[in-house]
Write a protein that binds this DNA or RNA. Structure first.
Lengths: 351, 351
DNA sequence: AACGCCATGGCAACCGGTTCCCAAGGGGGA
DNA sequence: TCCCCCTTGGGAACCGGTTGCCATGGCGTT
């Protein structure tokens, strides 16, 4: 028994070679499958492989340049339904294209993100996909730009998925969905039902996803000749509790509104519960709309009118464009459309 | 310019060494940090590292035995809320313990699972965590046993998380939650409200998670001296649509029941919508309970009475026991408890 | 001033594979 | 029967790191 074969049972290609009475190169060739090897040799080698339960070390193969490529995926929190769907799209497409898929959640910690990207550069990941909105500050742009350059110089690629783009010249692939357009269409639908005082439950003020949806809210008002009341634009975050709290407080201060547009379905869910708790009927007393079209939206009562975002498609596209990128078309920027899903939570305004 | 340094900008440790005028070993030692190196040499090396934007290849380090350990995580579909929470727990704990986290979704395809596990063996993953219930057939046990042995022989470890255990002797770590106990407590609560005809919306008949919950349903009846009507035990899957369809059909056939217990909250959500569509009040006409306590449960209307399962804790525990395993205590089997969360969807039976 | 120790850094082996290049041997055609 | 080609398989270099071992040289000590 050799030294290696007693080490936790992991056997090397040389162990196999010794057992089959051939050289390591021959074993490699049998396993590779392309190089011509005589039937008897092949049989002996395969038998030794089975006897030792041998599998070639993937890391060693990677060093030699024939490994399975890897792709990394960074998000804030995988338990959010829309994040989960993007993750699903990414994972599916990565698998379809023969890539392994590393995942990292940051829980909002910027330093985690930077560290992880650096680690992925060391791993020689084919691409790193950053998912989810962010504050679009100068610091954000510089930091992200550094990550992009660093990955690019290592032959890898940064993909921004639903994240603020970096301006021209950055070696980045950007896939966004149209937050402003979706919110515009949704709010236009609400206004068309006669509502004039529409409460907007937004996210963090500097978060670009929240900003886009807020812009759509404002633009829809102006397009209809309604000047939006700044007091009706509230800020929280994208959690269920935020929606719940915002509505409870708004009702407590006797803020007047006949409809609520939430920046996400999660927020809408909390808002709905708060409205119910206050004894209000939806949509009889107050209309409510969400954003994201998470699967649960149609099981709320009333079923939630919302904006459908093709999250899974987004994830798939991120992978496809990142990996299928051609040298002559290096920097892609895609904007995916959304559409309003009309259900039962928005009704005519009480006159 | 050397051959390497023009290759996509990736520079090797030898490039750095040449630029700093030292040998590769010195560069390695400077970066390693433990070996004593003179200040001037260190400065020159670090400068060369910065100039070339060098990062040591993680795969090469791994081959040399000093890489970042990796852990793999296999589930059917990450978009399910309970799966997502387990994934979150796994990822957090893996990160805390300094492990990278590979993820694979199988979409129910057994062959994918087998192939992926084999791939993880090649990757020398520290552990592979299989998540989610499964049919507990002989084929399942043999297949899973093979995976466990194969991983164990490679110094790795198979973890079954919410999956049927394999019986004694298998090199496996098992973390389960108490499906039967949770369902028992939940159904006992429903029966205590006076309900006698409780519809059970189960999963696939051979799926162990579904079976456990069904057993709890039956046991709670018997404990109360109520003989459960077999016609009230329905089978579908764990999707929202399944719950919706099952209730619609049950109502169409004029099945009599005063309460519904769904095998998951997703199923309960679909069921709730179907009940509403039929004009039934919950819990006035029919009581409803779920299982899993997903975040949305409290935003359903009425807020869903359900069983809380510590999914995130489960994921964390799976990682911790798999990695922290000691040689003298190799095979752990943990059973996590659950508890009923009483909300508003279960009321007294109409007499 | 000589000696010895320790700080420093290079050489080479090793991790576990792949693949280029070449040698040997067998079989078929002339 | 001889020669040539093609099939087959081995040796060694390489991928990009780490680390054991050893040589060197500067310093302090006696």
């Amino acid at each position: 028994m050799t030294r290696k074969s007693e080490d936790a049972g992991r056997s090397t290609i040389r162990d196999v070679a010794a057992r089959a009475g051939v050289s390591a190169s021959t074993v490699s060739r049998v396993l590779g499958g392309v190089y011509p090897v005589s039937a008897s040799t092949r049989t002996r080698v395969l038998r030794a492989v089975r006897d030792l339960d041998y599998v070639a070390d993937a890391r060693a193969k990677a060093v030699a340049g024939v490994g399975t490529p890897t792709l990394a995926f960074v998000l804030e929190d995988i338990t959010g339904p829309s994040f989960a769907h993007m993750a699903h799209g990414v994972e599916r497409e990565a698998r379809r294209l023969g890539h392994l898929c590393l995942v990292c959640t940051t829980e909002g910690d910027v330093q985690h993100e930077v560290d992880f990207v650096e680690m992925m550069r060391a791993q020689r990941a084919a691409a790193v996909i950053l998912v989810g909105g962010s504050a679009d500050t100068l610091e954000y742009r510089e930091r992200t730009r550094r990550m992009a350059d660093s990955l690019a110089s290592a032959g890898s690629r940064l993909v921004l998925c639903g994240r603020p783009p970096l301006g021209p010249g950055a070696p980045v692939t950007v896939i966004e969905y149209d937050n402003e357009g979706g919110a515009y269409a949704l709010v236009a639908h609400v206004l068309a039902q006669g509502h004039r005082r529409v409460l907007f439950l937004g996210g963090k003020p500097d978060h670009t996803t929240a900003q886009g949806r807020e812009r759509g809210y404002l633009a829809a008002h102006r397009a209809r000749g309604v000047e939006p009341d700044p007091a009706l634009v509230l800020h929280g975050d994208f959690t269920r509790d935020s929606g719940h709290r915002l509505i409870r407080d708004a009702l407590k201060q006797r803020l007047e509104f006949t409809a609520v547009v939430a920046a996400t379905d999660m927020v809408a869910a909390g808002a709905l519960t708060a409205l119910h708790e206050a004894g209000l009927d939806v949509p009889g007393d107050v209309s409510l709309a969400g954003y994201d079209d998470i699967p649960f939206a149609r099981d709320l009562h009333p079923a939630l009118t919302t904006v459908h975002v093709p999250y899974e498609e987004l994830g798939r596209l991120a992978v496809r464009t990142a990996l299928g990128r051609t040298p002559e078309n290096p920097d892609e920027h895609l904007l995916l459309g959304t559409h309003v899903v009309v259900r039962n939570s928005v009704g005519p305004a009480k006159s």
